[in-house]
């Protein structure tokens, strides 16, 4: 249905006037926009961004790309052994973290220990978690020297912080009734944990531990680059020696291994949840 011109005009006039943004607000917005521009321009210079370099070094990029497309598996036994070393680092880093993380996880759960126990332990675990495993690796390399053991220690400390947090959250989410059932029989605190808490959290714990193992395999690869042993170390050496075809082969092995592990552990985890 058409409306007449006059009706339309009166409708427009009757409508409330659009709100006017006050001048102060507009100035503030302008200042924020200007600030953003300044930050962007400054960090461009600070980061030495230089797109021209990509073009000027196009020859290098081409060599690198071409070599990566021709992976060289001639020394695959070495890579495989190194990959196994990386897995070994991840396995022990995770296992030690789980062993230590279980008591710390329980002792930082508010519903099973008094707050004055949980609070300090939680802060210690926060500290373990706050520092990246790479930083721990550098510290332990200084302490025990280059090699896989430093990698294990680095993963252990960082993962303990993560595991304790995940485990304690699982404990805090349990149904309290079964625990009271055990308490009611005259059981000790430890027996309440063993019979009332553990059966409830075990499936989640297993799932979390496997998940952390997956991500620790990825982390262990990176740890090698700073000297923490394993395949990362070899990768770093090939890159420094401009052996891009070999580096490519190493990357492929890492990708295949990590994907395979992810799939396996996902399957196991599904069974427990």
């Amino acid at each position: 249905m058409l409306t007449s011109d006059a009706a339309h005009r009166s409708a427009v006039l009757a409508a409330p006037a659009p709100p006017v943004t006050p001048i102060g607000t507009r100035l503030i917005r302008l200042a924020i926009a200007a600030l953003c521009v300044v930050v962007l321009v400054y960090s461009w210079h600070e980061a030495e961004m230089n797109p021209a370099q990509l073009l000027r070094d196009a020859g290098n990029m081409a060599t690198l790309g071409a070599d990566f497309l021709r992976p060289d598996f001639s020394e695959w036994e070495v890579y495989a052994l190194n990959m196994i070393e990386t897995l070994a680092i991840a396995i022990w880093g995770t296992l030690l973290a789980v062993i230590v993380g279980i008591p710390f996880g329980i002792l930082s759960a508010d519903n099973v220990v008094p707050r004055f126990v949980a609070f300090p332990i939680r802060r210690v675990m926060d500290a373990c978690r706050a520092i990246n495993e790479l930083v721990f690796a550098l510290i332990f390399i200084a302490a025990v020297g280059l090699g896989p053991f430093a990698g294990v220690l680095a993963l252990w400390i960082h993962t303990t912080g993560v595991i304790a947090k995940l485990f304690s959250e699982a404990v805090e989410a349990i149904d309290p009734a079964p625990v009271e059932g055990i308490r009611g029989t005259g059981g000790t605190w430890l027996q309440e944990i063993v019979y009332g808490v553990l059966p409830q959290v075990l499936p989640l714990w297993i799932s979390y531990a496997l998940y952390r193992f997956e991500s620790n395999v990825r982390s262990a690869t990176v740890l090698g680059i700073v000297g923490g042993g394993g395949i990362g170390m070899t990768f770093n050496e090939t890159m420094r020696g401009f052996l891009y075809s070999q580096a490519s082969a190493i990357l492929i092995i890492v990708i295949l291994t990590v994907s395979a592990l992810d799939m396996i552990s996902q399957n196991i985890r599904k069974r427990f949840i």
Partner: peptide, 14 residues
């Protein structure tokens, strides 16, 4: 003292 609760309070997985 034996206890019996409204919500059973058994450990379901055991």
């Amino acid at each position: 003292i034996g206890l019996v609760f409204q919500q059973f309070a058994l450990v379901g997985r055991l």
